[in-house]
Amino acid sequence: MSQTDSYDDTYTESQVIMTTVKIIAPFTLTYGMFMSLHGADTPGGSFQGGAIIGVTVLMLAFAFGIEPTRQWLKNSFVVGLVTGGVTIFIATGLATMALGGSFLEYDAFSETFGIAHYWGMEAIEVGGVALIVAGVVITLFFATAAGFTPERNRREDEPLEGVSDDD
């Protein structure tokens, strides 16, 4: 393929797809949150729930366009999802250490506060894993959608391949 050839990647709206996504997206988002909130209790859990939440954003991007979705869902929000999940995970582990237990030893919560160790696990499952998975799914999709071009990976002082100063 020569440099003059290009793909037509113009976005075309489909009223059927847009209407279907408008109807289905609230249900998939609700189901993803349901799965996340039942992280340690039922089959499924926060990993699957986070994946469903992330895929709901992908569905919106396919229906309404990748760039409009990327502009609507700010990069700082997606980074905040992953960072918040990691922060909750680490904070829960450090809290158990501060209470005299090992890292993520949930029994320290029940000994100190009189609450079941279940709540420490829920903090990790819902607050940590679901946020991280949803953020990573969205990030990988936007990174893949941006594509890879040699120009994007090239330093500014490097010439393009196949292009000489004589041209």
Rank of each mutant, 00 (worst) to 15 (best):
Q3L: 14
T4G: 02
D5S: 10
D5P: 09
D8M: 07
D9Q: 10
T12H: 14
E13D: 12
V16L: 15
M18K: 12
T20C: 11
I24A: 15
A25S: 14
Y31D: 00
M35R: 12
S36I: 03
G39Y: 04
A40W: 09
T42K: 11
T42H: 09
P43Q: 02
G45C: 05
S46K: 00
S46R: 03
G50E: 01
I53Y: 04
L58I: 15
A61P: 01
F62W: 09
F64T: 00
G65A: 07
Q71T: 12
L73V: 08
K74D: 12
K74I: 06
S76F: 08
F77D: 06
V79W: 10
V86E: 00
I90A: 13
M97G: 01
L99E: 00
L99A: 06
G100W: 07
S102H: 10
F103M: 08
E105K: 09
D107P: 04
A108K: 11
F109N: 00
F109M: 08
H117F: 05
Y118A: 10
Y118E: 13
M121F: 11
I124E: 01
G127N: 00
G128N: 08
V133P: 03
T139Q: 06
L140N: 04
F142A: 00
A143K: 11
A145L: 00
G147Y: 06
T149L: 11
P150Q: 13
P150M: 12
P150D: 14
E151T: 13
N153P: 03
N153Q: 13
R155L: 15
D157M: 08
S164M: 09
D165M: 11
D167F: 11
